[in-house]
Amino acid sequence: MLELQHIHKYYNPGTVNEMCLFDDFNLKIEDEQFVAVVGSNGSGKTSLLNLICGSIELDSGNVLIDGKDIGREKEYRRNQYIGRVFQNPAMGTCPSMTIAENMSLADNKGRLYGLKAGKNKARMNYYQESLRQLGLGLEDKMDVKVGVLSGGQRQAMALLMSTMTPIRFLILDEHTAALDPKTAQLIMELTDKIVREKKLTTIMVTHNLRYAVEYGDRLLMMHQGKAIIDAAGQEKKDMKIDTILEQFNQISIECGN
């Protein structure tokens, strides 16, 4: 279970640009829950993910995983149990390394990176098998550098790589936003499949309201550092895009957008 307790976060404290993002924000996410988070720009969606992952520091409050506070742990340490896919497909892979090398690199997460052979030849069949399931033909390009792949192919790989080793949480940071609609749909379906198969606890930030409604079993709408919609279970299932859109328009008018 992931718990955020009494989160406070200010940007540029003590200056004229001081901005309060979170003022006593609380959130509890049960195991194996797939949470979709929507909200306008600047509503605190990505900051929420960054606070969980440790990319930005907390002012005060606790981030608990199964009751253990990780709110002061360094980002790289938290990544032992967190997998993350970013909006930019280039962030999740190494462009100058081959597909096989990237897969081997990701497969060793959580273990020592010592003087053993970098390429895990024994697992090559497994890598090819998991790549084949993407249906992008990557399994025949094991020795191709990732830098020459398209954004969609890279994002599919990033998704695969971040979920290859056992993780507690999957963090998706607008991971379909930079892709064309067809590829985005493909990645979204793939995400859903992986999350269901591996029973991953997942937080997905998205600007695509349809994805937020169709996928996941809980929906959060963030606005000015608060969750103004929090629907789970049947309530989430009954949710329509129109309802959310209406709410969305309302908060946008408030903000003068």
């Binding site: 790289y76 997998g83 190494c94 462009p95 690199l105 990701a106 997460k109 959580g110």
Partner: peptide, 9 residues
Amino acid sequence: NDGIVTALA
């Protein structure tokens, strides 16, 4: 891509 090293914990 040093982000990936962080991602690999």
